[in-house]
Design a protein around this nucleic acid. Structure first.
Lengths: 163, 163
DNA sequence: CCGTATCCTGATAGATACTG
DNA sequence: CAGTATCTATCAGGATACGG
């Protein structure tokens, strides 16, 4: 058993794309810290306000402010000021679609933690609203097959004429 | 459009499971740093040796040693000494099945980076070996439906009799 | 309610030099 | 090849106090 991808074609010079062009590394430049991941988690849970982020993630105000600012700068959250009649102005932070597309990352992290670090699979589950069945992040190919890790192949991307 | 999960049932006291029991937070205690994620990436790519990890991830030896030790301690990698006839003893680090199950996290990170941070979808693709189709991490329910983020529901896990 | 300003601690990580 | 030892810089993050 070899939990290892097989490589097709050529990928060198290895260091070149590894350091700067690896999409995993690039994503980690945008969300690298624990607090960033957990703020995104809260955004998915529906949290929108500064104080709620700080309290529910369990981080201090300065850290909350820094992470929210960075996430807005990177376009994962957007800040919006609004005012309900008779109330004072409030702010809310909401996921953009760019940010929302990180959901599979969070679900995969949740899944792994529930499976390997919790006695009984963790305190919460995700369900498909339409049918009530539990949801998980899994690997699928475009043809719709479930893909096991031994069935994966890493290939250099084909360049198109416009590249 | 509301990129936000709807909640079913009760989850309070919120702070209680958020701080310590949230499976995302717990996973991030095991792999929290950039270097840990990238070492796992390399392990998936087939890297097994100390020097190769250091060079391909682009980190110093002390950092490499620290991360490898932690990942072995947490059971994501296993260290194995081996000796080929006529050669001297070598060491290799290989993914355990526990570690291999983090693959969806890495694929999801790769996918997001390729989509949002790269001009042309990033330098590499994952393919399903059997059929050659590109692979992605997506959300599915146990009934096999593709699940969109608006179709997600967060529910407290039901306790079984043995809990 | 939504932050900023300061100060402080500890962890992440680079550079360099050295050992089995 | 596979690390350890040191030394240092940078950054994540807590605590506290304060301002719009």
């Amino acid at each position: 058993m070899s939990h290892t991808l097989r490589l097709t074609g050529r990928l060198e010079p290895r260091g070149a794309w590894t350091a700067e062009r690896c999409p995993i590394a690039r994503t980690l430049q945008v969300v690298s810290t624990r607090s960033a991941f957990l703020i995104l988690r809260e955004a998915f849970y529906g949290t929108t306000r500064f104080d709620d982020f700080a309290e529910r993630v369990g981080i201090s105000e300065p850290v909350t402010a820094a992470r929210l600012r960075e996430l807005v700068e990177h376009g994962l959250l957007e800040r919006e000021d609004y005012r309900e009649p008779g109330q004072r102005t409030r702010r809310q932070y909401r996921l953009t679609s760019r940010g929302a597309e990180l959901l599979p990352v969070l679900v995969a992290l949740m899944q792994w933690g529930g499976r390997w670090l919790d006695e009984h699979g963790g305190p919460v589950t995700l369900l498909h609203r339409e049918c009530g069945e539990p949801v998980s992040a899994e690997l699928r190919c475009a043809a719709g097959h479930h893909v096991d890790d031994e069935e994966l192949e890493l290939a250099p991307r084909r360049r198109t004429a416009t590249d």
